[in-house]
Computed example of a mutant assay.
Amino acid sequence: MTTADAGTGRPRLTHVDCRRSGSGYLAYAPDADSPWYEDLLVSPQATLDIDGVPHAAHAVPLEGGERGFSLRLLELDAARGRAIAGQLLVHHAELREALAAARSELDGVPVAGRSGLRRELLGHCVTFCNGLRMHHLREDGAFTAIEKAHPGLVPALNRLREEHETVSRALLDLDALLQGEGEVESTALREEFERIAGGLEAHFAYEEANLLPALRGEGAAVSLSQLGNEP
């Protein structure tokens, strides 16, 4: 199970013993200090990896003083689809704001000889990366329910899953560049940053064009050929 760390927001992966209960699962914490238990009290969204397949789940505390949660797997209906569409736009807006904040640290400021800039940019990138990783992990879980409800979206969802992996590798490269020793050429840093930012914008646009119409019940999504090749 993957939860968002209650303190840092970073993804926390934990092996949790679950018991099947109807269409969901029951998970019991061995003690009140179990990190994943504290995470779900703060943010009840979880991603369950069941036999290698990610599933989005909503955690509801058990009644009667039991230390655990009922994990209800996402099932898509019309109302839930519209809600997910709205959440998707909100998350993308937040991530775009985080990108803009990081870009503002680069605009017109030479990197060589100013270690403070690297610290500031690294801080923005850490915040952005944690948010993006949780966003993608939760999306991967939601995709399982979406493709069950909308089989025609399978090609688009598979492409988005692949892009999640590509983005993750690119962010690791940027992190290594920022945390490396010595000075960093401003041109090289800006080019790497813009390469990643451009790829993310294309990813967000593709996702919105392909998923939002189906989630909102507006009809067919944009075809793959209409949006060109993978960024």
Rank of each mutant, 00 (worst) to 15 (best):
T2R: 12
T3Q: 09
A4F: 01
A6M: 00
T8D: 02
G9Y: 00
L13D: 14
H15N: 12
V16Q: 11
V16F: 09
D17P: 08
C18N: 05
R19A: 13
G22C: 04
G22L: 04
Y25D: 08
P35N: 04
L48V: 03
I50W: 05
V53G: 02
V53K: 11
L62D: 02
G65H: 09
G65M: 02
E66S: 11
R67E: 12
G68P: 01
G68Q: 01
L76D: 10
D77T: 00
A78C: 06
G81P: 10
A85V: 05
G86E: 08
G86C: 04
L88Y: 05
V90N: 06
H92V: 11
R96L: 10
L99D: 12
A100F: 06
A100Y: 00
A102I: 04
S104R: 14
S104N: 06
S115Q: 11
G116R: 14
L117P: 03
L122H: 10
V126R: 09
C129E: 14
A142W: 04
A142T: 07
F143R: 10
I146Y: 04
E147K: 07
A149N: 09
G152S: 04
G152L: 08
A156N: 05
L157T: 13
L157F: 09
R159I: 08
R159L: 14
L160R: 09
E162R: 15
E162M: 13
E163D: 15
A170Y: 09
A170M: 13
L172C: 01
L172M: 01
L174Q: 05
L174H: 05
A176L: 12
L178M: 07
Q179P: 00
E181V: 13
G182M: 13
E183R: 08
T187G: 10
A188M: 07
E191P: 01
E192P: 00
R195N: 08
Y206G: 04
L212F: 03
R216H: 06
R216W: 00
G219I: 05
A221T: 01
Q226L: 10
E230Q: 10
